[in-house]
Simulated assay, not measured.
Amino acid sequence: MVEAEISYRVPYADTDQMGVVYYANFFVYFERVRNELLRNMGLPYTTLEADGLMLPVASANCDYKIPAKYDDMLLIKASISEMKGCRMLVKNEVFNQNGDLLVVGGTTHCFVSAETRRPVKIPENVMTLFNDYKESK
Results as ranks from 00 to 15, higher is better:
55 L>D: 07
31 E>Q: 15
54 M>S: 13
40 N>C: 11
75 L>G: 03
120 V>F: 14
10 V>N: 00
126 V>P: 02
57 V>Y: 07
1 M>Y: 03
118 R>A: 10
13 A>K: 05
51 D>T: 10
7 S>Y: 14
96 N>Y: 00
77 K>R: 13
77 K>P: 08
95 F>W: 04
27 F>G: 07
108 T>H: 06
121 K>D: 14
126 V>C: 12
32 R>V: 00
23 Y>S: 13
68 A>K: 00
59 S>H: 07
92 N>L: 03
60 A>I: 06
119 P>R: 09
20 V>M: 10
22 Y>N: 03
3 E>V: 11
11 P>M: 00
23 Y>C: 05
108 T>D: 10
108 T>P: 01
91 K>C: 06
58 A>Q: 05
62 C>W: 01
75 L>V: 08
124 E>L: 10
88 M>L: 12
136 S>D: 05
122 I>F: 11
96 N>R: 00
105 G>W: 03
116 T>R: 15
112 V>C: 12
12 Y>F: 05
117 R>Y: 10
106 G>H: 12
22 Y>R: 06
90 V>I: 10
18 M>P: 07
11 P>G: 01
15 T>D: 00
72 D>Y: 11
55 L>K: 11
27 F>H: 09
25 N>A: 04
97 Q>E: 08
54 M>G: 12
56 P>I: 07
38 L>M: 13
42 G>V: 02
130 F>V: 10
19 G>K: 05
133 Y>T: 12
77 K>F: 04
91 K>R: 15
29 Y>E: 00
27 F>N: 14
63 D>M: 12
60 A>D: 04
43 L>E: 15
25 N>Y: 02
57 V>C: 03
109 H>V: 01
128 T>C: 15
21 V>T: 01
